[in-house]
């Protein structure tokens, strides 16, 4: 029957992409139950029919529903926040901020030095310095600093 087969196709697509479940066994229903607890569309047809007729699977569904309720309640279970954690976070940010400040001062000095050199020298010298800089680590860091400004 067209309707029945489309319902089965729908069920197959919804709960299990690779296997159609025409007359599911308890074992198959038990395996599929965790997939239909998301509050979305319930699979129709044979699965629901089986559960309606089978006490074992009804009990299993009740267990999964209870599990879902318990999972929702996990947020009410107190997690003790360790003492001193705020202090630790603030100290690590302090250290990171100092490192950043030092880096910024250093790169400022390098830039100031570089502009002084470039300002004093002629255009040809500046070009030569930049070309040389590419071959040296410290100079290439300098040019990265310039690029990021």
């Amino acid at each position: 029957m067209a309707v029945a087969s489309s319902r089965r196709a729908h069920l197959g697509r919804l709960v299990h992409p690779f296997r159609r479940v025409d007359h599911p066994t308890c074992e198959e229903v038990r395996h599929l139950l965790p997939e239909i607890l998301d509050g979305g569309e319930l699979p129709s047809g044979d699965l629901v029919g089986h559960v309606e007729r089978c006490l074992v699977c009804q009990a299993e569904l009740a267990r999964y529903r209870r599990l879902m309720r318990l999972l929702h309640q996990v947020r009410t279970v107190e997690v003790a926040v360790p003492a001193g954690i705020v202090g630790d976070v603030l100290s690590s940010i302090e250290r990171a901020a100092s490192r950043r400040a030092i880096r910024s001062v250093l790169s400022g000095r390098r830039l100031a030095y570089a502009s002084a050199v470039l300002g004093a020298a002629g255009a040809a010298t500046a070009l030569a310095l930049l070309t040389l800089g590419r071959t040296r680590d410290d100079r290439s860091r300098l040019s990265e600093g310039e690029l990021s400004l």
Binding site: T25, C26, E27, E28, V29, H31, P34, L37, L55, V56, Q58, A59, E60, R63, Y64, R66, L67, L70, L71
Partner: peptide, 29 residues
């Protein structure tokens, strides 16, 4: 994850024994 949690929170044999007329879970169906 849900299957594992269900097995741990409601161990199968005991739960099925309560819910059914005595058919062990592994043989039902």
């Amino acid at each position: 994850a849900r299957r594992l949690l269900r097995e741990r929170i409601f161990p199968a044999r005991r739960a099925h024994a309560q819910a059914t007329t005595g058919i062990p879970a592994d043989e039902a169906g």
